[in-house]
Each structure stands twice: as structure tokens, then as C-alpha cells.
Amino acid sequence: MSACPALLRFALPALALALLSAAPAWAQQHCAPREIIVGRLAEKYGESRQSIALSHGNQMVEVFASAATGSWTITVTRPGGMTCLMASGKAYETLTEQLPPKKKDA
């Protein structure tokens, strides 16, 4: 399974920016060192990293998911190593979509 390049390039950083600016109090309550977060996602939910991108301020945005259960989690890791849970859900699918054909000028 491979991640959609457009998702990596545009959607994940934009989502992280929106979530970071919209819910800083919530994010602060759900943060821990990266190794603890990644370990818990693997042990409790069977999730592994599916995609990665850089956001503003060199923040690392990652999507973790489980192919077995369809659960998913988006995390943001700050340069100092603190990782915050930003969103989670179910019914994760991996897509590889092609860009639409370029339109010819009239």
C-alpha cells in the first residue's frame, strides 16, 4: 500500500495547521514523548506509520493506521520530540489517485 502523493504534499500539513491552531488546549492534554505515543498506538491499536510530512516550524505530521481494524491516528511531533494526538477514527483506506488530465487552453 502506498500513500497518495497529493495527500502527503498538501492535505496533511494543512490539516495539522488547522488542528494546531484550532485546538491547542486539547492537544496539550494528549501529548507525550514520541516513543511513548508510537508504542501505545502499536500495542493498543495495532497501528503503524502509513505516511509522513513536514508542516510549518519543522513539525512532523504522521498518519498511523491498522490494516486489520481500519483505525487511524494523526500525530504532530514538534522539533523537541513532543508528540501530540491530533485526530483519530476508523475506516482507514490507502488510496493512490492520479491527477486529473490537464485541460487544454481554448
Rank of each mutant, 00 (worst) to 15 (best):
L7I: 06
R78H: 13
A68G: 02
I36P: 00
A42T: 05
I37A: 02
K90P: 00
Q98L: 15
L8R: 10
V61E: 09
Q98V: 12
L54Y: 13
A42C: 03
K104C: 01
E35W: 00
M1F: 12
L12R: 06
K103M: 13
G70Q: 12
Y45K: 03
A18M: 10
A16V: 14
E62L: 02
G57V: 03
S88A: 04
A67C: 07
T94N: 12
A6C: 11
A53M: 08
M86P: 00
A23D: 14
M86T: 02
A32W: 06
K102A: 07
H56V: 09
R34L: 04
S71M: 10
D105Y: 05
L20P: 00
T69G: 08
L20W: 00
V61A: 03
K102L: 14
I74P: 02
A3E: 12
S66D: 06
P13Y: 12
L12P: 10
R40K: 11
A27I: 13
S21K: 10
M82H: 01
L17N: 01
L85E: 07
E35M: 01
N58C: 05
G39V: 02
S88I: 00
L99I: 06
H56L: 13
A27L: 15
Y45E: 08
W26T: 14
M60H: 02
L12W: 09
L54T: 04
